[in-house]
């Protein structure tokens, strides 16, 4: 079936199967920053923004996304570069595989939460697993980006 998506501000039409997930549709169409870490919504690596809200594309049916706005990290280059700057300063980049999804989720959190506490930040990002950093460098970087103490 054909679905219409607005990906990073561009109108697109994709031919998808009924049981196809958004992650596969996006990767097939060269949005390779969206990556697979698991198969069951456990790791957060495949996160994209759907109408501005973070969602796991590995378990989001492509047909369900018909008519929606999808943002991958390529759609927020300025914010991603800014977040990368803070991550870099803390040595929190590490393997980088999940970092596009981190950037998207942190960006969405900034819009959603006002003056979040440490616990608010941890709760918001709890679905974004990281096996490299031990989370500490990320946490320092995110706080610096959000300009919170």
């Amino acid at each position: 079936m054909k679905i219409k998506l607005k990906v990073n501000g561009e109108n697109k039409v994709f031919d998808v199967k009924a049981d196809e997930y958004l992650l596969d549709t996006l990767r097939k169409n060269n949005y390779v920053s969206v990556r697979r870490g698991c198969d069951n919504t456990s790791c957060g690596v495949c996160t994209v923004l759907i109408n501005g809200n973070p969602a796991a594309s590995c378990s989001y049916l492509s047909c369900k996304a018909d008519g929606k706005e999808i943002t991958t990290v390529e759609g927020i280059p300025e914010e991603a570069a800014k977040i990368a700057g803070f991550f870099g300063r803390e040595g929190a980049d590490q393997c980088g595989f999940c970092n596009p999804s981190m950037a998207l989720t942190v960006y969405a959190m900034k819009k959603e939460l006002v003056n979040p506490t440490d616990d608010d930040i941890r709760s918001y990002l709890v679905g974004n697993l990281c096996r490299c950093s031990g989370y500490q460098g990320q946490h320092r970087a995110i706080k610096a980006y959000l300009e919170v103490e």
């Binding site: 390779v32 280059p77 991603a80 570069a81 990368a84 700057g85 596009p100």
Partner: peptide, 9 residues
Amino acid sequence: DGKGLMMGK
């Protein structure tokens, strides 16, 4: 490489 990777290269 951190910036390029975060930006989805």
